[in-house]
Design a protein around this nucleic acid. Structure first.
Length: 430
RNA sequence: GUGAUUGUAGCUCAGUUGGUUAGAGCGCCAGGUUGUGGCCCUGGAGGUCGGGGGUUCGAGUCCCCUCAUUCACCCCA
């Protein structure tokens, strides 16, 4: 074991894996553009109150999972962001972007931090792709972000996902339901587990998605939130379902889906992946019309959005074998030399090739010719260019096609001419 | 925060009831081919056996503590 290791729950991404990230990120950028979303970056930390107010102080995230610290004794507490929505909303309100246009569509791919015990599909530093549609409060907006998310999965070839959706109604609906739940559970108080007892007081809705089998039994007989929705909330929800059906997006209504963040209202959804372990949520989101007011804004700023766990997405793709065609590109040519006196000349040639726009490698470690050739082969170079005394005197170099083993003798200008041919790489290494 | 699991070479792992100098495969390096890669053959480098303490004539092996890993709970992406 090396003396220093990465911090618990944090990991390194090496070049082989990086290729996958680049690929997925590329697809994300183009699909976001397709739907008219623009990228935003916000600070990696925020004042702690932002998350306490935005996410909700009764949530697990705020209660026990935040990395918080105080830069100076008198100063305000700062927190490494555990999610993105609060920060994006803060940025939008701070700049008052709605005054420039009534609707804003923003997306991000960002690093998040949560102080949890790491396990399969869960790290302390992780990243999410997310989109926020600000300024419109409608079923159409929710449907649009869900559609965007599902199209991303489809474009990547991810399959067998399960989209579950529910409506949490508006604030009044939830208040009425909340007291109904409390009176339902009250007689069972002794049978509740510790966390459910606590939730009964603070946030009874959360008892619904408890995984404890004993709790689930009790929950089965509990009143349904759906029955407490106002007529308009039901209509809105059905409109969302209509849009989804119309776009051939299959879903499953889950009346017990409540999600852990306080800011959701009306539609809330979650996508799970069968390829993951116990932590199988690959994405989730909903509507959060009241968040802006919660953050001190004078009026509501209607909004809808989602977040997709990048690591979980990549993990699912890996499991589903979607990366097999992704081969890292090697250099086009390796400049190889035998005599050490010619090293400088070889590097000079490598420089000239690179100036000509040809990706080139050369040995910097004074290794044997055999080692250099082995290296060229390992990095899947298409060609080797030999630099020796003979070449130096004649000005003609030996260019070897490493796939066909054919070798020709050419002037450097001719070599550059050949290697510049753009389609060459595909022909050589298909 | 709770529970369980696993720590031996760069990687994947062997290592008998405690017994001399801790092994294999792959990878890496070199040679076979003194100017030519992949395949093959030969050789080489590389290990505080996670760390600390204890038991013992003797510990990779047994005991305690500790650190780390992984999985699960909780909850979430």
């Amino acid at each position: 074991m090396p003396h220093y290791q990465a911090v618990k729950g944090a990991r390194d991404i090496f070049p082989e894996e990086m290729a996958r990230w680049k690929y997925v990120e590329g697809v994300i950028h183009s699909i976001a553009a397709l739907y008219g979303f623009s990228e935003i970056r916000t600070p990696i930390f925020e004042y702690t109150e932002l998350f306490q107010r935005g996410i909700g102080s009764t949530t697990d995230i705020v209660g026990k999972e935040m990395f918080s610290f105080q830069p100076d004794p008198q100063g305000r507490s700062i927190t490494l962001r555990p999610e993105m929505t609060a920060g994006v909303m803060r940025a939008a309100l701070q700049k008052n972007i709605l005054s420039s246009a009534p609707v804003h569509k923003l997306y991000y791919i960002s690093e998040l931090f949560r102080k949890e015990r790491p396990q399969a599909g869960r790290q302390r530093q992780f990243s999410q792709f997310g989109a926020e549609l600000l300024g419109v409060s409608s079923s159409a907006a929710v449907a649009e972000v869900i559609t965007l998310m599902m199209q991303l999965f489809e474009s990547l070839g991810v399959h067998s996902l399960c989209l579950r959706i529910n409506s949490l109604g508006d604030t009044e609906d939830r208040l009425r339901y909340r007291s109904a739940l409390q009176s339902y559970f009250a007689p069972y108080h002794d049978q509740l587990d510790d966390s459910s007892k606590e939730r009964l007081e603070k946030n009874p809705l959360r008892i619904l998605d408890s995984k404890n089998p004993a709790m689930q039994e009790l929950v089965a007989g509990a009143p349904r939130l759906y029955d407490y929705l106002s007529a308009s909330a039901v209509a809105e929800f059905e409109k969302v379902l209509f849009y989804l059906s119309e776009r051939s997006i299959s879903y499953q209504i889950d009346y017990r889906l409540v999600r852990g963040l306080d800011y959701y209202s009306h539609a809330a959804f979650e996508v799970t992946s069968p390829a993951l372990g116990a932590q199988d949520a690959i994405g989730g989101g909903g509507r959060y019309d009241g968040l802006a007011r919660e953050l001190g804004n004078a009026s509501d700023l209607p909004a809808a959005g989602f977040a997709v766990g990048m690591e979980r997405l990549l993990m699912t793709m890996e499991k589903q074998g979607l990366f097999t065609t992704l081969n890292p590109q090697g250099p086009l040519v390796c400049v190889v030399t035998q005599q050490q006196e010619l090293e400088d000349h070889a590097m000079q040639i490598a420089w000239r090739l690179r100036k000509a726009g040809i990706s080139t490698e050369t040995d910097l470690a004074s290794r044997s010719m055999k080692a250099q050739m082995r290296e060229a082969n390992r990095m899947r170079a298409a060609y080797a260019l030999f630099v020796g005394a003979e070449e130096l005197s004649t000005g003609l170099y030996s260019l070897k096609n490493l796939l066909t083993s054919e070798q020709t003798t050419l002037s450097l200008d001719a070599v550059i001419e050949i290697l510049r041919e753009p389609l060459l790489r595909e022909q050589v290494r298909s």
